[in-house]
């Protein structure tokens, strides 16, 4: 235990995800030994990010404006929406440079055991976006874990409507891996999702 504000700083840092008591103490002492100007800059950025950054009114991605840069971009296809769990998943898909449509961030996945049900996610907003018939395909890109799969099942059941194609991201073997090391669940999914190879 340290005195006063040093302990307060350690306690506050320790509340951040992935930061344990030891890490919090290390970061606190790093801050104490850092140039004053750098610490001031960090404090300013932390304040600014809370004041300026909010969620896009259309897709739920993080943005400093009312709409995010992807929703504002006229070159993006408005016929396809990729549904992801978190805003950080948008940047993961964007890094592939494969997808040219729009996104919809749910804000999590259905997890009854954690008290998260469909009403706690941005599913109603997704249905509103589909109402005018512009969107012809919804790609469900929730995490390939239990909660993500259950959320995909729920959405698939909900999104049955004429003229709308609902697809799910493929699951399977990681590129660069050896088949013999694949676990049976992943390998089973790879078999299920196999596709015809064109000559």
């Amino acid at each position: 235990m340290y005195e006063g504000i040093v302990q307060e700083l350690i306690d506050e840092l320790g509340r951040l995800p992935g930061i344990g008591p030891k890490s919090a103490q290390r970061i606190a002492f790093h801050i104490l030994q850092t140039e004053s100007v750098d610490v001031t800059r960090l404090a300013e950025v932390l304040t600014e990010v809370r004041e300026k950054v909010h969620f896009c009114v259309i897709c739920g991605n993080v943005t400093e404006q009312e709409q995010c840069s992807i929703c504002r971009d006229p070159r993006r296809s408005h016929a396809t929406i990729c549904v992801v769990e978190e805003a950080k998943d948008v940047s993961a898909v964007e890094r592939t440079r494969e997808f040219k449509g729009l996104y919809h961030v749910l804000g999590g996945a259905i997890s009854p055991i954690d008290g998260v049900g469909p009403d706690d996610l941005r599913i109603r907003q997704l249905l509103q976006r589909l109402a005018d018939g512009t969107v012809t395909e919804v790609i469900i890109a929730t995490d390939p874990n239990l909660e993500g799969e259950a959320t995909a099942t729920y959405l698939t059941r909900l999104l049955v409507q004429p003229g709308l194609r609902v697809t799910r991201l493929a699951s399977g073997l990681p590129v660069g891996g050896d088949l013999e090391y694949a676990d049976e669940v992943t390998l089973g999914r790879a078999f299920e999702g196999r596709r015809v190879v064109e000559p």
Binding site: I113, L146, E149, A150, T153, V185, G188
Partner: peptide, 18 residues
């Protein structure tokens, strides 16, 4: 391995969670 069969049915998923 019951996870994929259970998550394929939303009702079963919520029941299994309980």
């Amino acid at each position: 391995s019951y996870g994929s069969d259970i998550t394929g049915d939303y009702s079963a998923y919520t029941a299994a969670s309980v």
